[in-house]
Design a protein around this nucleic acid. Sequence first.
DNA 1: TAAAATATTAGTAATGATTACTATTACGAG
DNA 2: CTCGTAATAGTAATCATTACTAATATTTTA
Lengths: 136, 136
Amino acid sequence: MKHSRQREAILEYLQQTTSHPTADMVYLHVRKVIPNISLGTVYRNLNQLVGQGEVLRLSCGDDCDRFDGTVSPHYHFRCTQCHEVSDLVTDPLEHINLIAGAGFGGRIDGHSVYFYGICPDCLANEKECKIRLTNG
Amino acid sequence: MKHSRQREAILEYLQQTTSHPTADMVYLHVRKVIPNISLGTVYRNLNQLVGQGEVLRLSCGDDCDRFDGTVSPHYHFRCTQCHEVSDLVTDPLEHINLIAGAGFGGRIDGHSVYFYGICPDCLANEKECKIRLTNG
DNA sequence: TAAAATATTAGTAATGATTACTATTACGAG
DNA sequence: CTCGTAATAGTAATCATTACTAATATTTTA
């Protein structure tokens, strides 16, 4: 399917960043290229791209959704301290669909996994704090 | 911790139902016992119960959160057709924390998994439809 | 016990992400 | 080019959730 200029710019940004921006962050960035694009257009095109499987929607329990231009199977990690969402390099766990499907009357098409904990940066800061508390 | 009458009623309802109600559904049910309870009170107490680990919050990418009074480890399935959320009887997959943690600089505290697909009921209806389409 | 301190509430207003709407603009087929 | 369709910008509306406040309930303390 051919993309409009606006949709193309949104997709390009998502494919080129490793962050997992919210709709608002996408809006702010794409405005640098198309200054008068509207937020509604961003939402509409994000939904369309998700529907076509060209973009992933991440709902990790934050107040707002995030979007990911990398559609190959991978998992996500959310820091419970800074709320940053990052990719996790792990082999896909396709077998868990089978485990879950055993004895289930329905059809399992897939799964999404969100790991949570403290990210490397916050962990470093935490340690730093403890050292500071101990020494001072 | 001692619960107020309102919080007790909310917790009781969540522990006794196998559905995974939204805050609004909790509100509607608890109103049968405490008719003038306010929606804000429901939200405030749900947040408090979640914070204390007495209730789970489910964020499966629906527009609104759902709540679960069963806190022992288990997984959830969301039907992409009727949007119903149900429990899935499966062994906990604790080992995937280790798999994911390999080579990751941060600390992984846990994970949440949502399976999706077609639930038994919708699957039955779908088949029925196809039969009907074929025959008529 | 009663008075004072604290916690919780009902009700309502505010917030913020997302969607709906509408008049206008871009664009491909004939 | 001209018509018809699709997409847009801008704005208003929606809906889940949170914030606020004056009033009520509960606990503490004397």
